[in-house]
Design a protein around this nucleic acid. Structure first.
Lengths: 133, 133
DNA sequence: AGTCTAAATAGTAATCATTACTATTTATAA
DNA sequence: TTATAAATAGTAATGATTACTATTTAGACT
């Protein structure tokens, strides 16, 4: 009954396992570095290809915070993020996903809305206390 | 009393004027094409440099919808956007900016929040009617 | 009007994340 | 065991953006 022509690969398994083991929303390169400790000759292209496939399959999420490098997240229950403009870390927000916003927007607008992306920008607690001039 | 060492340039004036004359959230390249009709030998680097400076000065906004190319917007009262995943157009949303979200998030979290970015994703009315399979 | 100086530009090269390509390897079904 | 297409490694290409450098120019001060 399996119609998907998807085969197992230890590379993909490792990528997904490492991504699932962190909440740090890493970049492709961070994942590459960590996977390499286990599979030293893995190709960066393989990491990118698998991350793309996995996010297209809905197994992971691709995030864009606007700093030029994509982030990935295996925690795919929808949630918001906070990006510290100081240390460039991306953190999960505790606020629950507000799907009412989608229907609100859908009514206020003629479009079919699939989802929304909400990112808060600012300065995290750590960086605030470090900030001395 | 003027302490800014910023000089007039017809290039910057033209870039800002053309960006102000559209609500289409154009890319740097679109702006480049249009400015070239007026200043044929303007450099793409000049367009990028001015767009960067203008957005740092707060005169315009840089937007990132996650498709790899930045958009720019001279309408800088804060507002939300809708991105059509079909035609890749970026449109203004009618919903007002909800600054209560910022304070809500600030309390729920330890961080100092400057602003938030909210983008809705989906399929616009035009593309929905065109979609036949 | 003429001179000076730093800001801005044009044109080009470099960067950096990501994707594409190709020969080789490998999971898995027969 | 063999066959075959999926996945990979390694490398080249792409595309947006930034950096660099010699030249031009705004605008202040004679």
């Amino acid at each position: 009954m399996e119609t998907t022509s998807k085969r197992y690969s230890k590379q993909r398994e490792c990528i997904l396992r490492i991504l699932s083991g962190t909440t740090s929303h890493p970049t492709a390169n961070w994942i590459y570095d960590h996977v390499r400790e286990e599979i030293p000759n893995i190709s960066l292209g393989t990491v990118y290809r698998n991350l793309s496939n996995l996010s297209q399959d809905g197994a992971i999420m691709r995030l864009d915070v606007g700093d030029g490098t994509d982030r990935f997240d295996a925690n795919f229950h929808p949630h918001y993020h906070f990006y510290c403009q100081e240390c460039r870390n991306l953190l999960d927000m505790e606020l629950p996903y507000d799907s009412a916003l989608d229907s609100l927007a859908e009514h206020a607008y003629g479009a079919k809305i699939a989802w929304h992306n909400l990112i808060f920008y600012g300065c995290c607690a750590d960086c605030q206390s470090t900030e001395k001039e």
